[in-house]
Structures are given as C-alpha cells and as structure tokens.
Nucleic acid binder design. Structure first.
Length: 271
DNA sequence: CTCCAGGGTTTGC
DNA sequence: GCAAACCATGGA
C-alpha cells in the first residue's frame, strides 16, 4: 500500500536514534517490529511511502507508532532562539518519538544501562533468538520479543548467556511482576506522569533514566526527559548545569531526542 | 591492558 | 540528604 506523509519523517534517523533496538535496514527500506506486528516501509519520494500493511492496520497501529498525528515541523520551529537545540532540531529533522510496546521498552532499557548501543542491540537480538517465539503473521526470520512468561522460565543462566551481566536479577524481577500481574503495563496507561514514573521505578533496576525512557518511548509521555550520561554532559558543558528542557513542557522529550541524536552524530568532535 | 558504555543499588558519612 | 563503591560484559 502507498501512504502520504508530509510531516518530518526520516526512517534512517529514527533507526539510528537509539530509541528502538530491533529496527533494521533491509536494503530496500526499513523494518520495524512492535508487539506482534512487523512493518516494511520504503520511501518512494519526498512525501510518498510504500508500506507492507493494510490501510486498517496502518491507521490503527502504525500511525500511532510513528506519532504521525503530531506536527514535528511545528515543534522544531519553537527552538530557534536556543543555539544548540536549534542546530540539533534542524539536523535531527525527521526523528520522531515512537510509541513502542511498553514491555519491550522496559526490558530493553533495563538492559541498556552502562552498555553501548551496539551491545544493547546484540543482547536483545540474542534474547529474541533464544526465547522469542515465532508467529504465523511474521516473516520466518523475525521473532517476537519474548514475553514475561518466557523470560521467567529462561532462568539465571539462560539470561546470562545473552550477555546481560548484573542486570539478570533486574530482568527477572520485571518479568516476575508482570507475569504475576502485580505490575500491569496496560493499566499503567491510565496513570498521570508522576504515578506512572513511580510505578515504573518500583521495578528493581529501574531508576529515573530508564523510567523516563519507558514513559517517552512507550507511553508517549513527551514531557519526559531521560537524562543519560550524554545529556548530563550537555547540560553541564553547554548550559552551565541548568537543565534547558523542562521549559518546553509537552515538547521537552522530543527536543531531548533531537539533542541525543545530534550528540551521537558528533560524538567524535564533541569530546 | 585500560577505559568506557542511553545507570542503579548499596554503603558510608 | 549526598558521594563513592560496586555491579558483568564486550568493544575500542
């Protein structure tokens, strides 16, 4: 099917933006996976994209996934007075905040702590290869992200074999609590930001940074700003220790993602 | 070999 | 309340 998208959308930048770890370039476009669905998408011209799904699935699943009802070009136009954020937003044009599956994002960002992005991708790929099931709806080489039950029964050694290191008990705690229902990730959608943050932080190994990643990349809470080592350095070095993001309210998390993308691209030159 | 990676928990003051 | 030590693993 063909869809028209006029707002900012750059599939390569999204794939490189460090918010999703299972997106792949296929050679003729990009592959995105969420929950039990997969999408192959290819840009044909400026505003035209070829997608592998039906119109119904596109509207119900992938429009929310890519946050396509929000104007990112409008958001970019609000930061022209900030030298750094202005540059970051201009260069990051096309990056969007994905609404991913909460369970996958929770586990992925627990794994992410003190790991490089390539190392995170490898661990998640091993986890999916070893414990993720197949689905008739998916291509042969695409596996589901393993559910709470699968990770509960994987055991300490099974999880360790995926290179998770000291994070294994954290993953086990999250899996156990979601599996027994004491943490209901779907029910959390009803909570306001403060209560959602607290609920996520009740999981072992989930602190402010990981919780804010889950809020931003799964629950669409765009005022959440994950402060990692890079953003922390940015606040120290470019803003004299004064966090520039909160004043942007609902757009803070989106601007943070432009900043993160910019830092990743200019790592070598930024020291 | 040393250093660091999209941090969090525990311990000691 | 805060800072420091510690946590496992892989890549540069």
């Amino acid at each position: 099917m063909i869809v028209e998208i006029t707002d900012d959308l750059d599939l390569q930048k999204i794939a490189e933006s460090g918010q999703c770890f299972r997106c792949r370039e296929t050679g003729s476009g990009y592959r995105f996976v969420t929950a039990r669905s997969v999408l192959f998408i290819r840009q044909m011209d400026e505003v035209t994209y070829s997608v592998s799904c039906s119109e119904a699935e596109w509207k119900a699943l992938w429009v929310p996934y890519f946050d396509l009802d929000r104007s990112y070009s409008k958001i970019r136009s609000t930061v022209t007075q900030d030298d750094f954020l202005g540059k970051a937003a201009a260069e990051g044009r096309g990056v969007r905040i994905l609404r991913q599956d909460p369970w996958e994002v929770l586990i992925s960002f627990i794994i992410s702590q003190r790991k490089s992005i390539p190392a995170i991708k490898r661990s998640i790929e091993r986890l999916c290869d070893q414990y993720g099931g197949h689905s008739d709806l998916l291509p042969e080489d695409v596996r589901l992200f393993p559910g709470p039950r699968a990770l509960c029964s994987a055991g300490r050694e099974g999880l360790s074999s995926c290179g998770l290191g000291y994070r294994v008990p954290y993953i086990q705690d999250a899996a156990a609590r979601v599996y027994d229902g004491s943490l209901d990730l779907e029910a959390l959608r009803e909570l306001d930001d403060d209560l959602l943050l607290a609920a996520l932080k009740s999981v072992k190994g989930v602190g402010d940074k990981v919780a804010n990643c889950v809020m931003l990349f799964a629950y669409g809470r765009t005022s959440s700003v994950p402060i990692d080592t890079w953003i922390k350095r940015l606040i120290q070095d470019r803003y004299g220790g004064i966090d520039p993001f909160p004043r942007y309210g609902e757009n803070a998390g989106i601007l943070q993602q432009y900043a993160f993308y910019y830092i990743q691209k200019h790592k070598a030159e930024m020291g």
